[in-house]
């Protein structure tokens, strides 16, 4: 019961935070020079001043900024994110929605890849601290982390796409004949196209996550209960994976929780390089075009997920770590 009250309190506290985020973003966004019709209107000889005024009025930009915010917020309360300011004038949600599946797919796959590879890597590096294996992986992971993603991507494309001709260079599926494939071949086709993007987007995360695992693991391995476990004569495997790893993963929950908004964030760099129609590209072009509704729409989604991610991380802690749960009770 206490736990439920605590959760509700935490959840309610997020509401003012959320409103604050939208308020600040909205005002900061309007500080950037230029206006949504800049791209259409600037340097266009056929654009008349009257037309410009009319466009401003259509977008509601002629009103004071707090009025604009109020109008936007009212829409948000009815779950309406408004329409884009770009010439297509589509609904913001439609524009974001059509890009979400592929972004989430790639991010989930790369997150999975990161966890599958980096946890064993980190554990081994910690168990054999300062061994050759530890040092080599440290160097490799940092080299991969430091290498610019676009450069790695281009090298891989050149090697696998052109030299060896094993994998497609860009895009999501084969252009011609895709419709005629059966389901199995379609999945295979997608898979071939996704290998490089998933790999490139995972590289950066590998370094961070395996380092976190390593240091968290080292800390746990130093503790008394590990010595006890070993003294009991438990096999080393059980000591490490049962007793140590479980405890070492606790801080990683926070990091995972914080990665949730990243799942829809997308990245302009690899999306552009691999020509993937994801959320990152949409955001980037919206920034360039000062497309406020799309930017705000995306921001709402990201900030809700960030706040939820934080909440989940806290809850996750409480669930897996009894000390935190009991600590809560003592506080009150």
């Amino acid at each position: 019961m206490d736990f439920l009250i605590w959760t509700t309190k935490r959840a309610l506290a997020l509401i003012p935070t959320f409103i604050g985020i939208t308020l600040i973003s909205f005002f900061v966004m309007h500080l950037a020079p230029g206006e949504p019709m800049s791209l259409q209107a600037d340097f266009n000889p056929k654009m008349t001043p009257e037309m410009r005024q009319r466009l401003r009025a259509q977008y509601g930009l002629d009103k004071p900024i707090y009025v604009q915010y109020a109008k936007w917020f009212k829409g948000l309360m009815q779950l309406d994110l408004g329409r884009s300011f770009s010439p297509d004038r589509r609904k913001v949600w439609d524009k974001i929605k059509e890009r979400l599946p592929v972004t989430i797919l790639i991010n989930v796959l790369s997150m999975a890849l990161i966890i599958i590879v980096s946890i064993p890597l980190g554990v081994r590096a910690a168990v054999r601290q300062n061994s050759l294996f530890d040092q080599v992986t440290t160097v490799l992971v940092f080299v991969a982390y430091a290498a610019p993603a676009f450069w790695v991507a281009l090298l891989l494309m050149l090697y696998f796409g052109i030299e060896l001709n094993w994998l497609p260079v860009s895009g999501l599926h084969t252009l011609m004949g895709y419709e005629q494939m059966d389901t199995w071949h379609k999945v295979l086709d997608w898979g071939r196209h996704l290998v490089l993007p998933v790999f490139v987007s995972a590289i950066g995360g590998l370094a961070g996550f395996s380092r976190y695992t390593r240091s968290s693991m080292l800390e746990v391995l130093r503790q008394d209960f590990i010595t006890t476990a070993r003294a009991k004569g438990l096999p080393e495997r059980t000591v490490i994976y049962r007793h140590a790893l479980r405890n070492a993963l606790l801080p990683l929950i926070t990091i995972l929780g914080l990665s949730i908004p990243g799942l829809i964030g997308g990245s302009v760099i690899f999306e552009s390089i691999f020509a993937i129609p994801g959320v990152g590209q949409l955001m980037w072009s919206s920034v360039m075009a000062r497309d406020y509704p799309v930017l705000m729409g995306n921001l709402v989604i990201v900030s809700v997920l960030t706040l939820l991610g934080n909440l989940l991380a806290d809850l996750g802690y409480a669930v897996v770590d009894p000390r935190i749960r009991t600590g809560l009770r003592e506080e009150e």
């Binding site: 281009l154 796409g161 052109i162 260079v169 860009s170 252009l175 552009s272 020509a275």
Partner: peptide, 15 residues
């Protein structure tokens, strides 16, 4: 095809 990066576009041409 929409390919935002000119380097990728050139590689697609080659491929």
């Amino acid at each position: 095809r929409i390919i935002p990066d000119p380097a990728t576009m050139f590689m697609e041409l080659k491929a």
